[in-house]
Write a protein that binds this DNA or RNA. Structure first.
Lengths: 209, 209
DNA sequence: TTTATTTTCACCTAAAAAGGTGAAAACATG
DNA sequence: CATGTTTTCACCTTTTTAGGTGAAAATAAA
């Protein structure tokens, strides 16, 4: 069995892009000849092979023997088009403003549909203290910046000004100080031993390997 | 004169990522042999060709005859030019060559630097059998398509044609065991006569929230 | 200086991607 | 039905990708 990649070649993405534009502007799907003419391919037979590849990769469906019978498997969601650019922030020095240039290690681009709660930035997790939540050492977590959190939510917090922690918020035991700016949120007793500030809510996780 | 695509192949992208990680962690650039060993390429000559391709595509420079003489080229725009488009595939149909029946539900765009091993497609995890590996129900895992896996690696495998699982692989002589690595789940001993196929290696994880 | 590491080369194989020719089949519509 | 459009097919070529063998050249180290 051929271990085919689902990755599109550049020719294939160009063709898919052309078809997508056609369909999104309300017109019928293009014929093989039209695709070939647009992309500078001189024979429909070559175009057909590309389109068949795209079908094999699950991106479109060909209605057999039907003129202009190409349909996309999934009409592009507006969400699919734009890309979120999330800064991966490194060490936090005490007192520094949150997004000073020096802190941004890299920028990760990712489709926004992945997240229910939109992250504002990414932090790399150090340590296995959140293993029970499926968050491992070296994972990258997305943080939705907000000082307000509810009991039971997973929050990104800063300890002693420079260490990031991911913790599940508990009203009693463990931890923690919560700064309740909104009515209906109960304050949490601060832990006197640690300087603890909530940076935001856990909004997603990315693991490299 | 052929119009070369500038777009990296899967192999090239992996190699570039490996080199980049090496250099960014402060160490010297890898030798050809080291690259080959990491990626499972058995001869430096094959590696050299990939590296030459990357040079032709402007991603790195080779200092001639110098050991560990690979230098990365900083691209003009700080943003990574290339964004990976990873299809999230739905159910895997029984028996068939994998992609003829697969449905691409959505396409996720993500920066390639996130992954050590480049995923070819994404699958949503059902069930908590890999909880100890930090893989939870409804997580999205990246799969690097390859039929070859080593003892101890986390693989995406297909049992009976249609049951898709993420498990840690254990060879015991000839016997293959798939260990769920969570208490309460039993190891799977696939019948060698029945359809058992390794789809690929675990290459990353994405969690929405 | 000898030895071991590492790069580089010439020369192979095989598969996938890209393109093409020419004709047959299917369809749409006057 | 006849005709033009469009899809589909069987059979070609070429380039790129991916891998390999075995040896020579260049370099680094002992």
């Amino acid at each position: 069995m051929a271990a085919m990649t689902l990755q599109l070649t550049s020719r294939q993405s160009n063709i898919l892009e052309f078809i997508r534009n056609r369909l999104e502007s309300g017109r019928d799907a293009p014929t093989l000849e039209e695709i070939g003419h647009e992309l500078g391919i001189g024979h429909v037979s070559a175009v057909l092979k590309h389109v068949r590849s795209l079908e094999a990769k699950g991106r479109l469906v060909i209605e057999p023997n039907r003129a202009r019978g190409i349909r996309l498997v999934r009409t592009a969601d507006p969400m699919d088009n734009d890309t979120l650019e999330l800064p991966l922030v490194g060490r936090i020095a005490a007192g520094e403003p949150m997004f000073s240039e020096s802190r941004v290690e890299r920028v990760l681009r990712v489709s926004p549909w992945l997240f229910r709660l939109r992250p504002d930035y990414l932090v790399r997790v150090v340590g296995d203290s959140m293993r029970d939540e499926g968050i491992l050492d070296q994972d990258i977590v997305g943080v939705h910046a907000t000082p307000v959190a509810l009991h039971g939510q997973v929050v990104a917090a800063r300890l002693d000004g420079d260490r990031f922690t991911i913790k599940r918020l508990h009203w009693k035991g463990d931890v923690i100080r919560l700064l309740p700016n909104s009515p209906g949120f109960h304050p949490i007793d601060p832990d006197p031993t640690e300087d603890f500030a909530i940076e935001g809510l856990f909004a997603g996780l990315l693991r490299g390997s």
